[in-house]
């Protein structure tokens, strides 16, 4: 049996007339107080997260207001982070019993194995591509990329964006003063063609 209580109506622990324990708690579904007569009353100690701010920022993974890490999706991707290849398990996620932690750790290991078992990793097609002919090596993309992906390839004297690392936001594309970068699937000509077609209609 599990009865949830809210902070306004905390359970009351009293000594009953016969000397035993008595716990009175308001059941939020029934809307009525439930009286329990336990032999033993155990209190769970609070679980507070370790300082996770630095780690979270380092791996760019989200945390909740309390400082526990957030999974990508509670039902569909329960041990994944939103970023690829990073998984979570245990108390870093939320307070939970040891068996649940172990089950989750096994799940995280399984998810990691599916990733590692691949000979090849397919990445999304929405990535920025530099035209080395147009690139003036001004470093604008290097400075504006929120993920520090662009690097200068001195073999061709142009910026290089690793398609496996590129997140596809397009910030560098819009900032590039030489229009040397295009975001695949969202090129300037594609966006402008959409605009002109829609504005004409």
């Amino acid at each position: 049996m599990f009865i949830r209580f809210d902070l306004e109506n905390k359970p009351k622990v009293e000594q009953a007339a016969d000397g035993g324990l008595q716990v009175t708690v308001l059941d939020h579904i029934l809307g009525l107080p439930v009286v329990l007569r336990p032999d033993l009353l155990t209190l769970a100690s609070a679980v507070v997260p370790n300082p996770t701010e630095e780690l979270g920022e380092l791996f760019k993974v989200s945390r909740n207001a309390e400082g526990f890490f957030n999974e990508a999706h509670a039902k569909l991707r329960p041990v994944d982070f939103a970023s690829d290849g990073i998984f979570l398990a245990g108390l870093a996620h939320y307070p939970k019993p040891i068996d649940e932690s172990i089950a989750q750790a096994k799940a995280a290991a399984g998810r990691a194995a599916t990733f590692l078992a691949q000979d090849m990793v397919q990445v999304g097609g929405v990535v920025a591509v530099v035209d080395p002919e147009k690139c003036a090596v001004c470093l604008t993309c290097v400075r504006t990329c929120p993920f520090n992906v662009p690097v200068i390839d001195y073999k061709v004297d142009a910026a290089y964006i690793d398609p496996a690392k590129c997140q596809g936001c397009g910030v560098c594309v819009s900032e590039c003063p030489g229009k040397a970068i295009q975001l695949k699937h969202f090129t300037d000509s594609q966006i402008l063609a959409q605009e002109l077609a829609l504005a004409a209609g």
């Binding site: 936001c169 910030v171 819009s174 402008l192 959409q194 605009e195 002109l196 504005a199």
Partner: peptide, 24 residues
């Protein structure tokens, strides 16, 4: 009319101007 982009960071001043030029 809605134009989908991955992030507002992709919005170039050129795109905004072109929309007005196109008649928006």
């Amino acid at each position: 009319r809605i134009i989908l982009i991955p992030c507002t960071g992709r919005v170039d001043i050129l795109h905004l101007l072109k929309a007005f030029e196109g008649g928006a």
